[in-house]
Amino acid sequence: MTPPRPRLQLQAATGIHRGDRQYQQDRIEIFTHPRVAGLMLAVVADGMGGRSGGRMAADQVILTSRQLFDRFVPSQEEPLSLLQSIVRESHLMIKLSAISAEQEPHSTVACVLLQPDGHCHWAHVGDSRVHVFRAGRLLVRTKDHSYVQELVDAGTLSETMARNHPMSNVLTSSLGTAEDPPFVSDSMPLKAGDVVLLCSDGLWHYFVDTELGSALDRLEPRESCEFLIAKARQRAVGRGDNLSLAVLKLGRSEARAAAAPHGTRP
């Protein structure tokens, strides 16, 4: 008989900062399932469309994610279906909200569903990213829906050049636009010591993957959030965007329940 897979303990933290903008349009949340111990959903949304429009779009992503996750029944539904519903319904609700809004609200989304046994599923739209690190080494990084990413894919621009390109903020897809967004998802089993990072472009823009991996490997989630925000703010030199991140770090445990997430808001 195959022995049961040991439960993985989770340490989690979130961080958010307004940067040098007048208002905050990022939203980041980690939800625990109301009926299934150890089942968690992390979501980051980077709103666009003016002061109220962008925040409204990001708020709608978070609200839709919470409602769908609360109704999710793992024994009857596939994780892929939940993530697809989050993308599709958030997109629809933002479009409906735009009817009564002066601005044109849009948002990115990156979401991660983490199961009690450590299996991880994710989806994203836009340039908010999901990363998976093991022992400080990058295993997975989502590919942005952006103009510069298309240039990188075509071989006409390097990753380094793309980071500082004058059109680096131009997206080819987001939630709330006229065109339906693509649904891009993947999954993998995680091991003790693995770290999942979700973040908006206001954070990842200031780091290479090796820097992120090193910080996440040597620091606990709360400390890594504080460190990465402080370093991003320093490197922005007064021109920083809104930034947000969630860090999920796994460790081996026989405990029945995962640790509750903590938030940090510098």
Rank of each mutant, 00 (worst) to 15 (best):
R129P: 04
E159H: 12
Q67C: 03
V132W: 12
S85G: 06
S75R: 12
P79A: 08
D70W: 10
C111T: 15
R71Q: 13
H145G: 03
S146A: 04
F72K: 10
D153W: 05
L82R: 09
S97T: 02
E78Q: 14
E77K: 09
P105L: 05
S90M: 11
R137H: 12
A98W: 11
H91A: 04
H119E: 12
L151Q: 14
E89C: 01
F133R: 05
V112H: 02
V152I: 15
V152T: 07
D127T: 02
K95H: 08
T108W: 10
F72H: 13
V152W: 09
L157A: 06
D117M: 02
C120P: 07
S146R: 04
V73D: 14
V125D: 11
S97R: 13
H124I: 08
A98R: 12
S90W: 06
D127W: 10
S85V: 00
W122L: 05
L92Q: 15
Y147N: 00
L80R: 14
E102Q: 13
D153L: 12
F133A: 01
W122K: 01
L80C: 07
V112K: 01
P74E: 10
Q149L: 06
Q149G: 05
H131S: 09
W122F: 12
V130Q: 03
S146N: 04
D144I: 00
S158R: 11
L96F: 01
K143E: 13
P116F: 01
A98K: 05
Q84G: 10
L68C: 12
L68S: 11
E159F: 11
V152M: 06
I86Y: 09
I99Y: 02
G118Q: 11
P79H: 11
H121M: 01
H106G: 09
G126K: 02
R141K: 13
V152C: 03
R134F: 02
V132L: 15
S97D: 15
V130F: 08
S146I: 04
L83P: 02
A101V: 06
T108R: 09
A154D: 15
R141P: 00
R141G: 03
S85W: 07
A98T: 04
V112W: 04
R137Y: 06
I86Q: 14
L83V: 04
K95T: 09
A135W: 01
Q67G: 01
K95N: 14
K143P: 00
E150Y: 05
A135E: 14
S128F: 04
L92N: 13
V140S: 00
L96A: 12
T142R: 02
M93R: 15
V112M: 02
Q103S: 15
S128L: 03
